[in-house]
């Protein structure tokens, strides 16, 4: 380790271990010794897993992919906070220097009925995919790329749509919410289309369908606590939920009788 500023940390981990979806889970304690303060949280778990594999035990299962905060794979709740204590970051961007030597860290999976545990810290987030499948896209033909400025989009709307579109669908909003509500995710997915001209044709039906699917999946209701936005690695704004609420109200009023 010579030449790096990192110092070695010794930590105690309490990790949720659960062999499978229908198995009983429990916390298991591990000693994490000699962890570089420069390591990411996932690298720390890698070190633990190498030791577990060496000693013939099952490694801790957790989701990860890009490890640079953009894929939305990594999850887990660290000391009660989804993606750990820092705002605007995913678990993979959390560094061990954030913890004190000798500290005990409690690591749990995202807990929600709609996110069943697959194994240990890995949960099944396909409920989000099913919500997207009922309307999180534009199916009308929008033609070729139009000439510049032939389709005016106010700069403010473009910015808000882009901010909403940065949602990586990690599910931290659900994990953070006291009601396991998916409102922030669904509202971000609705907003990034509702704010642009191409999204208008299907705006109302999309809102009705995605909200219906959100409820169908068993997510809770929104209490406007803002915990979702605080836990969101992309800091999606609560204003999106307000937009969803008013679009849903309007769409419900305007909805025509069943076309069958």
């Amino acid at each position: 380790m010579a030449g790096t500023a990192g110092k070695a940390l010794n930590l105690k981990l309490k990790v949720w271990r659960q062999a499978g979806p229908d198995k009983e889970g429990r916390f298991v304690e591990y000693e994490a010794r000699n962890i570089s303060s420069d390591a990411s949280f996932l690298e720390m778990l890698d070190v633990i897993n190498v030791d577990l594999v060496k000693s013939g035990q099952e490694p801790i299962e957790f989701d990860h992919d890009c490890r640079e905060g953009i894929c939305g794979s990594c999850s887990m709740v660290i000391n009660g906070s989804p993606h750990g204590p820092d705002r605007g970051t995913a678990t993979c961007q959390l560094h061990m220097r954030r913890f004190r030597d000798g500290e005990t860290i409690v690591i749990e999976p995202f807990r929600a009925k709609a996110f069943p545990i697959v194994k240990d810290l890995a949960v099944d987030r396909s409920a989000f995919d099913r919500i997207m499948q009922v309307g999180g896209f534009i199916s009308v033909n929008t033609g070729n790329a139009p000439d510049a400025n032939s389709l005016p989009v106010p700069k403010e709307n473009a910015d808000m749509a882009f901010a909403a579109a940065t949602c990586i669908g990690c599910g931290a909003c659900v994990a953070a919410c006291k009601n396991a509500s998916a409102s922030l995710f669904v509202s971000a997915k609705l907003a990034h289309l509702a704010l642009l001209p191409q999204g208008q044709a299907e705006r109302e039906q999309r809102t009705l369908s995605m909200v219906a699917q959100m409820d169908e999946e068993g997510f809770g209701a929104c209490t406007n606590t803002g915990a979702c936005s605080a836990a969101c690695p992309k800091e999606i704004d609560l204003e999106n939920i307000a937009r969803m609420n008013r679009d849903y109200f309007k769409a419900s009023l305007r909805e025509r009788s069943e076309k069958s």
């Binding site: 204590p85 953070a176 809770g220 915990a227």
Partner: peptide, 24 residues
Amino acid sequence: KNSVARPNKYAVAAEGAKATSWVQ
């Protein structure tokens, strides 16, 4: 509905920036 949506509670509650106020 909300309670059914989270059948298993967390062992620890969030502190700091990601905490939910006790009033809510």
